[in-house]
Simulated assay, not measured.
Amino acid sequence: MSAAVPKPRLKTSAMIASIAGEGQITRSAPFGHALVELARNRPEVVGMTADLGKYTDLHLFAKEYPQRYYQMGMAEQLLMGAAAGMAHEGAQPFVTTYAVFAARRAYDFIHQAIAEDNLDVKIVCALPGLTTGYGPSHQAAEDLALFRAMPNLTVIDPCDAIEIEQMVPAIADHRGPVYARLLRGNVPVVLDEYDYQFELGKAKLLRDGAEVLIISSGIMTMRALETAKALAADRVDVGVLHVPTIKPLDTATLLREARRSGRLVVVAENHTVIGGLGEAVAAVLLTNGVTPPFRQIGLPDAFLDAGALPTLHDRYGISTEAMCDTIKGWLR
């Protein structure tokens, strides 16, 4: 009896860092530009990073306000401790690093030094979820689950360049610690078609639909809108509810939309299906006695592969084409 031949491992080549599609409109470094503008009239705003100014768009702030910029070296725990100290002295630190380093390396320092004292520190982190092809060391697939569990911490997952620009002054006006995912570099422009205005703690219905409601955050709202347009050609009517604030959730809007009968509710997230938006929404619905047909699109409970982002997004079911196929399969 011959041994089973193992399946060849799929390979990809280029490590593509941008999530923008071909020909898609983008804006360069929306976070960096927004923070520079914010700081013009707010001398308490300081920028802090752990050797990643260029890769979190904070270099723009450093160029404009070099005396208010602190480069802490490759020491994320020190970065968070120093940010706590600055906040105690009246500064408002905007702290950047990669999401994996904040969530997995500096978690205890954020928990004990920042969140427990409810300090006014804004932690803004690049490479959230599956937005890099460099494998598990850089893919923050579980950051929302970790930070949702931290008391006092507001958690935000913005969709595009427009929302990032609007988010910066909004979180500056909010007193208390914030964790925000960051799309850096050339960031897609998506929400310009929807007369959108970011409001902390508020979900927004971007598109109505009678058959399917996709509840999404971050880049998955872009994918959800693309999916809704694609499925319209197949006469499938899809609505999209964008939920940029993961904590606190806009419970009232979620319940209002989920109570509408006859719709499949799908939560789509750029995060593991464990502990993220999907499970948060499910808990809200169940504890309030709302039980529509419910499905999740998200990353698996696994260490993800390295490779080119389009290949990985297809492989893990978060590309537009994969979402269309999945949802059509659920409707059969």
Rank of each mutant, 00 (worst) to 15 (best):
S2C: 05
K7S: 06
R9F: 14
S13W: 15
M15K: 14
M15L: 14
G21C: 01
E22Q: 14
E22D: 13
Q24F: 03
Q24G: 00
T26Q: 10
A29G: 00
A34T: 02
A34Y: 12
E37V: 03
A62I: 02
P66G: 06
Y69T: 08
Q71I: 01
M72I: 06
G73C: 08
L79H: 04
L79C: 04
M80K: 07
A83Q: 05
G85Y: 10
E89W: 15
Y98D: 00
Y98R: 04
A103Q: 11
R104Q: 12
D108R: 07
F109K: 02
H111I: 00
I114L: 09
E116A: 09
D117T: 01
I123Y: 14
L127R: 13
P128V: 01
L130W: 10
T131G: 07
Q139V: 01
D143A: 14
A145Y: 13
L146V: 09
R148H: 05
P151L: 03
N152W: 10
L153V: 07
I156D: 01
P158I: 00
C159L: 03
A161T: 00
A161M: 01
I162Y: 11
I164D: 00
D173L: 08
H174C: 05
H174M: 02
G176V: 03
P177V: 02
V178W: 14
V178L: 12
L183F: 14
N186P: 05
P188K: 13
V190I: 15
E193P: 00
Y194K: 08
D195K: 06
Y196T: 00
Y196K: 01
Q197V: 11
A210F: 15
V212T: 08
I214P: 08
I214Y: 15
I215W: 15
M220W: 01
M220E: 04
T221K: 13
R223N: 05
A233H: 09
V236T: 05
V238A: 09
V238Q: 07
V240R: 13
L241V: 05
H242F: 12
T245Q: 06
K247D: 01
P248S: 06
T251M: 14
A252R: 11
L255V: 00
A258L: 04
R259A: 08
S261T: 07
G262N: 11
R263F: 09
V266A: 13
A268S: 06
A268M: 05
T272G: 15
G275K: 08
G276T: 07
L277T: 01
E279L: 10
A282K: 09
A283L: 11
L285S: 11
F294E: 00
Q296D: 03
G298D: 06
D301R: 15
D301K: 15
A302K: 12
L304T: 00
D305E: 06
L309C: 07
P310E: 05
P310C: 09
D314H: 13
T320Y: 12
A322Y: 12
M323A: 07
K328E: 04
R332Q: 14
